[in-house]
Computed example of a mutant assay.
Amino acid sequence: MTSWDSKALSFINQTSRWDKEKHIGSFLTFSINLLRTLLHANITLQIEFQDEFTARVKNAYPEYLEDMVLDPEPIKKMLYSNAFKTIYWPAIPPPNHNVLKDLLQAFSSSVIIPLHTEPANSMILLGWSEPVEMTAAFQECIETMRIRLKEIITHSQQHSHFQRVAARFSAIMHAMPHAIIFINNDGYSGWVNQPAAELLELSGAGEQLPAILSDAMMQLRSRATNAEEIYQEAMQLFSSPANVITNWEWKFDYPTEKKYNVICMPVSSQQVSGRLWIFEAV
């Protein structure tokens, strides 16, 4: 096995372990730093095309290049003229033929790796102070790393998207006046908003173990003045094919007299399977 084969395999192995063991938020930064280490590059960075007017440098080494703003149009023209294939420069083109001259003025060789990953396309720039012989084995190594980098960026983008969706969902659920409880069928995860945390006398809103939620729900039911009626309704609920109940009254007289209209229904999708409870004070 040649040294370039070893470097490509090492990049795949190390990023695969990071994917399983470390925090996804720093996955891309780690991967670009690993590129620099394995390829002995003197400059590594990502150029992200944020909109038609802005390209921004990310994950940069040297660090002073971080967040540098570039004009995306000439860079995109260069990438499109090369059919979005990797660009190999054993010798850096002269400034009048080099749209990246501001980044590469002190370097001898460079590789530009376009990464076509919707919705935010980007590219990776590598540079060396000394000339690099870009053999067929070297280029094969780069192309293998490119495939893995595209997977990493796609994974990171998906993670960021899901984080935004989760933050939106959490903000909406916490703003609702009803007590909302979700217990996942996996036995490991559950969730409550702030009114539900107060109703169940939990320490706080957010993620909770299903065992804790089930115990709190049982204690809540035992405090109800119509606990026996609730129990009978529950037996019918869980034996019913529809497995849904609405307009279910839970009544309390301690610490204050209060009545809740309760809805209980299954929730099922490709990602989630569990039961949703909604307590509306009436």
Rank of each mutant, 00 (worst) to 15 (best):
Thr256Gln: 14
Ser269Trp: 15
Gln236Leu: 15
Ser268Cys: 07
Tyr254Asp: 13
Lys259Arg: 10
Lys258Gln: 13
Tyr254Gln: 14
Val244Arg: 04
Glu257Cys: 12
Tyr260Leu: 11
Glu249Tyr: 04
Thr256Leu: 15
Pro266Trp: 14
Leu237Ser: 00
Gln236Arg: 10
Arg223Gln: 08
Gln270Lys: 10
Ile245Cys: 05
Glu233Cys: 14
Asn226Ala: 00
Leu237Phe: 02
Tyr254Met: 09
Met235Val: 14
Ile230Asp: 07
Val244Leu: 07
Arg275Leu: 09
Arg223Met: 05
Phe252Asn: 01
Ala242Lys: 04
Glu233Trp: 03
Asn226Phe: 01
Pro241Ser: 05
Lys259Tyr: 11
Thr246Leu: 09
Asn247Trp: 00
Asp253Lys: 02
Arg275Ser: 12
Val244Thr: 13
Ala224Pro: 01
Ser273Glu: 12
Glu228Trp: 00
Pro255Thr: 10
Ser269Val: 09
Gln270Gly: 02
Ala224Asn: 06
Gln271Asp: 14
Lys251Arg: 10
Asn226Glu: 03
Gln232Leu: 10
Asn226Met: 02
Pro241Thr: 00
Lys258Gly: 10
Pro266Phe: 12
Cys264Phe: 00
Ala242Trp: 02
Trp250Phe: 08
Trp248Cys: 11
Val267Phe: 15
Val262Arg: 00
Tyr260Val: 15
Thr225Gly: 10
Lys259Trp: 04
Thr225Pro: 04
Trp250His: 08
